[in-house]
Write a protein that binds this DNA or RNA. Structure first.
Lengths: 181, 181
DNA sequence: CGTTATGTACAGAAAAAACTGTACGTACGA
DNA sequence: TCGTACGTACAGTTTTTTCTGTACATAACG
């Protein structure tokens, strides 16, 4: 038979590659997914040099992608006494990983959109008051205002949705079943 | 004062640009976001030529990006009698747009991951039975199996989460407030 | 049935993103 | 305090993605 270690490696590689192909949902490139997958199967915190050796990529790349992984809250930096190098390990709660990614990414989007809407809405309301406005233009302004009010409402909903994830209420609607193994 | 039309345009541009900067959350490039934003403010269905003229981009680009927008369920193709060209307009229910994107993108990811996990799990269970396995390797196999069981559970949760979006249960947890204007 | 308009496949160009190696600032250990 | 090891900024290179123009297949109209 072929080497059993090879088979184990093959099994891991399949999962890792699957993660790599889908990590774009977290806004990260495939190589960051590979890094995450590799770290997931290592049962210890890794240094940048470890990762570099394991993945055959430059330490610089490891450094930048580990930062992305940190910002997306997929990995944690950990300390170990006597070890000078930075150590990282993957978070072990995947439910929370999902929730964190979701809240981080969407909260920022909502915040940016909301600011833009507020500004434009103010401008349009001001513009409506001007007296050198044709009826045709006025109609345009008013439909635009309608539209902005609608999407503002939508972003308010999205904000509340993010809240529901952040404060774990989502698990009331869709429970984790892990406890009843 | 400056031209009122310019001001209207500026207001629209701010929103459109905000969409363009965040459309990556839908897996689409900024230009598709610009296209969507522009269509959002036009109060009529547009042809590829309209879009090309409006955005100053090639018709080919319009064709490919409108397909992406369609697949992501952000726009619809509509028919108008007497018009030979294809007509497109943005969907007007942004809540549903969000739900559709979410379900489409994540369902595919869950499906791919689940298949990979199933395969690897089967391989590892088989491998465990082999009799030329050292204790050390056996331990590795068993922790890998543990891990795969855990993430399988997680993907099951994710699948149920997607169900909750798809069948609109999410609106029980986080209601739309639009009706009470 | 022929003609013309329309959308898209495809190949190449342009732009953006990812990756690498060097060089440097910082902090830890002797 | 000095020396060394570490992480990262930065510039340049490679790879990937996006965009364009041409050429073609298809379908609508006379």
């Amino acid at each position: 038979m072929t080497d059993a270690y090879e088979k184990l490696e093959k099994s891991r590689k399949r999962i890792t590659e699957s993660i790599a192909q889908n990590i774009h949902l977290y806004g990260l490139p495939p190589s960051a997914g590979r890094q995450f997958g590799m770290m997931f199967f290592e049962n210890r915190p890794l240094t940048l040099d470890d990762m570099s050796a394991e993945l055959g990529m430059s330490k610089t790349s490891m450094s930048t992608s580990i930062r992305s992984l940190s910002e997306a809250k997929l990995v944690d930096r950990v300390w170990e006494r006597g070890v000078r190098k930075d150590l990282y390990e993957v978070k072990d709660d995947w439910y929370q990983i999902f929730v964190d990614m979701f809240t981080v990414k969407w909260r920022r989007a909502v915040s940016l959109h909301t600011a833009a809407i507020r500004k434009s809405l103010a401008e349009l309301k001001e513009l409506k008051k001007a007296d050198d406005i044709t009826d045709e233009l006025l109609a345009l302004i008013e439909t635009d205002i309608e539209k902005l009010l609608y999407i503002r409402e939508y972003y308010d909903w999205l904000d509340r949705l993010i809240d529901a994830f952040e404060d774990q209420k989502i698990f009331d609607l869709v429970p984790r079943l892990e406890d009843e193994a």
